[in-house]
């Protein structure tokens, strides 16, 4: 019966304002791109039905967030229940790259994940369609950062030209599904422990 329950994978996209979070979400979910996206106020999400590893289906909720504001209580509301966090920088913007680590920390502080050390992150270096002379973040720097943050998978993408977006989200889906399964297993384990403790307690009380 539990296998029939709808699996929802919640994916949060974080990063500085203007790096292309909304574009990536729309490219992945609707396969559309527009030059004209308004600033995201708070958060928004789109859903997509996906097949994972051929035989499993799930609903992916892709959460797009505002890049300018650091929310406190609302951050908890946005991030809670996330199965994967996508950190986005713009390959033409140094500051957005330097802020990747602080976005990761921001997420871990507010998301209240069960195992921060194993929680899945994916880094996307977006806007690679832009001419080479304008790129300021080298592939090597990005790889070093991804490695230093715990071998986080890294993809260089372009929402505009639809480069690497689908492969990146396939990886995101796999990581999210794994995390979702881990959380479900942990919950089941805790639930069984609680039942066992209760049964032990009942036996003691009978002996009295």
């Amino acid at each position: 019966m539990s296998s029939k329950k709808k699996t929802i994978l919640k994916v949060i996209i974080l990063g500085d304002s203007g790096v292309g979070k909304t574009s990536l979400m729309h490219r992945y979910v609707n396969d559309k791109y527009s030059q004209q996206y308004k600033a995201t106020i708070g958060a928004d999400f789109l859903t997509k039905e996906i097949n994972v590893d051929g035989d499993r289906t799930a609903t992916m909720q892709v959460w797009d967030t505002a890049g300018q504001e650091r929310f406190q209580s609302l951050g908890v509301a946005f991030y809670r229940g996330a199965d994967c966090c996508v950190l986005v920088y713009d390959v033409t913007n140094t500051k957005s790259f330097e802020n990747i680590k602080s976005w990761r920390d921001e997420f871990l502080v507010h998301a209240n994940v069960s195992s921060p050390e194993s929680f899945p992150f994916v880094i996307l270096g977006n806007k690679i369609d832009i001419e080479e002379t304008k790129k300021v973040i080298s592939v090597k720097s990005a790889q070093d950062l991804a490695k230093s943050l715990g071998n986080i998978p890294l993809f260089l993408t372009s929402a505009k030209s639809s480069i690497n977006v689908d492969p990146a989200f396939e990886e995101i889906a796999r990581s999210a599904l794994q995390q979702n399964q881990n959380d479900a297993d942990a919950f089941e384990e805790d639930f069984n422990d609680a039942i066992n403790i209760q049964l032990d307690g009942e036996a003691d009380s009978c002996a009295c």
Binding site: I41, G42, A43, D44, L74, A77
Partner: peptide, 13 residues
Amino acid sequence: HSNLIWLIRWTRL
């Protein structure tokens, strides 16, 4: 989910 997720945009804009 918190209702503030939608209320924030409704009210701010």
